[in-house]
Nucleic acid binder design. Structure first.
Length: 227
DNA sequence: TAACACCTGTTC
DNA sequence: GAACAGGTGTTA
């Protein structure tokens, strides 16, 4: 293993194979955790419940644990195969201009919040942060993604950067399953503005947070603050 | 874009 | 016992 890094929502292990006869000596092992997957570092012989794969290293092992078995483990020969088509909002590529172009692409009437989950536009956002970003940007999640004006796009861009950076600092959100490689759980839950807070008072205006279903996924928002 | 599928555990 | 869950893929 030469390098381990994130690519969209996948964790990539860049590996050099030992087979000299092979044309490609480079391989990428791509792990997608989906809903309940975890990568843990352990001893060679540890076998936690729901262990799906064990990558044995010279010292210890990387354990792929996944309760619901939605997670995937694939091998790619190059990064393009693993590459999600969207822009990574944690990188310098994510500019207001770039976001504007993505929103206008295909003039999608798709509602904003489901649009934020599209990995072919932006990579890495999930259902929690999509709701949180709409709240921080003060945008109604039902608005058409292509219908935002320049100021609204600027707010959306700022909110995306803000939410992701704060959540990463807090090591993620953690409802029940997430842990990092050392078993540490995230603490961003304490900062959530809307997700899971339906019926509770908006932290900004005190009115009740609503829960709706968009594209078969729950969305939380404040109909007073988000327009 | 809806409906459903893939799984299992937790909560209502 | 049903409903729900942080994700995504297929089918119509």
């Amino acid at each position: 293993v030469e390098r381990v890094f994130r690519w969209g929502k996948q964790v990539l292990f860049q590996c050099k194979t030992r087979c000299a006869a092979e044309e490609h000596t480079q391989r990428f092992l791509a792990v997608h955790l989906r809903m309940t997957g975890r990568l843990l570092i352990g001893a060679h012989d540890t076998s936690p419940k729901h262990l799906r794969a064990r990558l044995v290293l010279d010292e210890g092992a990387v354990l792929f644990v996944d309760t619901r078995r939605f997670g995937t483990l694939e091998v790619y020969e190059n990064l393009e195969q693993a590459s999600p088509a969207g822009v990574d909002p944690t990188t310098a590529d994510f500019t207001i201009e770039r976001l504007t172009a993505l929103l206008k692409r295909g003039r999608s009437e798709q509602p904003l919040k489901p649009w934020l989950l599209r990995q072919d536009r932006l990579v890495g956002l999930g259902n929690i942060y999509a709701s949180e970003i709409c709240f921080i940007a003060r945008l109604d999640p039902r608005r058409a993604a292509s219908g935002l004006n320049a100021d609204e796009i600027r707010r959306l861009h700022g909110a995306t950067c803000e939410v992701l950076s704060a959540a990463i600092d807090a090591c993620g959100t953690t409802f029940s399953d997430f842990q990092d490689a050392h078993g540490v759980t995230g603490s961003y839950q304490q900062f959530l503005s809307v997700y899971g807070r339906n019926g509770l008072p908006c932290r900004s205006c005190d009115r009740s947070i609503d829960k709706i279903i968009q594209a078969q996924r729950s969305t939380f928002f404040c109909s007073h603050c988000q327009r």
